[in-house]
Write a protein that binds this DNA or RNA. Sequence first.
DNA 1: TGTACATCAGTGAACGCGCGTTCACTGATGTAC
DNA 2: TGTACATCAGTGAACGCGCGTTCACTGATGTAC
Lengths: 225, 225
Amino acid sequence: MAQSDTVSRILDTAEVLFAERGFAETSLRNITSKARVNLAAVNYHFGSKKALIQAVFSRYLDPFTQRFHGALDELEARYADSPIPLEELLETMATTVLAVPAERNSLKVFMRLLGLAYSQAQGHLRRHIQEQYGDVFTRFTGLVRKATPDLPDAERFWRLHFMLGTVIFTLSGLDALRDIASKDYQEQVTVRDLVRRLRPVVVAAMNAPLPQEVEGAQHANAPVS
Amino acid sequence: MAQSDTVSRILDTAEVLFAERGFAETSLRNITSKARVNLAAVNYHFGSKKALIQAVFSRYLDPFTQRFHGALDELEARYADSPIPLEELLETMATTVLAVPAERNSLKVFMRLLGLAYSQAQGHLRRHIQEQYGDVFTRFTGLVRKATPDLPDAERFWRLHFMLGTVIFTLSGLDALRDIASKDYQEQVTVRDLVRRLRPVVVAAMNAPLPQEVEGAQHANAPVS
DNA sequence: TGTACATCAGTGAACGCGCGTTCACTGATGTAC
DNA sequence: TGTACATCAGTGAACGCGCGTTCACTGATGTAC
């Protein structure tokens, strides 16, 4: 095998524990004892706990970004120079995200990790991810821009982040929400089912009417009440 | 004053540090030294770190739920037995949330705390909050139900949580997003501005068309391709 | 009015514990001559 | 083919540190008689 068994045992165990309990709440002793690997092996192979965390992310994000770039290449080729419809872009993103678990543990773990990275207050991790993987997101937002030419830039920026919030919050808190949902309704919801429910909501949100002007904003002949 | 200065000094400092760095990453020594209070005072007044965290939440949530119940009472009285429009319900919730900073530090801190509580993987805290403050949320969703009679129950449940994700994610990550936004566009966005932008998006999301049927779901006379 | 006692907020120092990291070492495998 | 050396994955034990919590204690204020 390309890299030692120990390395992947550590990564496999770490990603699950991180997703379950967070970074600070998961000790190297937790990880190494569960992976049945020597405590010192983490520092031997990765250098530090921080570096281990980044390695866990890379193992998800490297193939993801590569595949996403590929899918966008294909889409651009298919549409030549005419703008790609918003629905196609969103669909492509969803498909690429859903393809993740094919080679890695699970989509749930991936989403929990993303959620943790974003809510990580200090933000070293978020900055690292942004530096390393910001390009593909920039490319995506550029294409969304062409697909929604009537939306002001700032409005598009915020709406994309609103929807990012919806997706990360929902899928990373999936277990908790699923508990509540299955208590109230007898339905057992799957990730694919959630994505199906998300689709029309995201499209409607992106196409929502523009917000009203701010009250008290300067209008040429605004009457004073 | 009703309670000792020490108690409120601890709470004031703790909520800010928790919001900035998370619970595990904030030590009692951080809090007590910044609050210029004896280390042992936390355990003297609150009993444990866990109890301190819950006390921080109660100081936000107690007045919030009380005010929200009051606002809903008023709304129900005004509309007698006819259903309250969705926009009114959302507006009332927004107004009540925005009223929080009037007596507490800031809305940003409140939202970061909520975001942390939800992303807290272990979930003792989320369970505590749900037990203590779930009633007002149940009441609210009941009213939303009357306002959207055409929405299937499960669909309404998920859409409300989609929007909860949008709001918590956006407002709790506000500083980071604000950084990015002000780098790309020269705009300095305020919380009130964000709420203005959120309004049409949330309404459109709640009123989005229903999702397509699941592929391969059983239809009486569905043609087989 | 005076004294003994109780209550209570707050303190300083120490407790044991689990943490991430380091270090000297082992043993297997590969390479040079 | 044989020997000396280098490289490398992995190990066991210890390091110092910061953590939440505990405990005996102080000093001020209130209460009973």
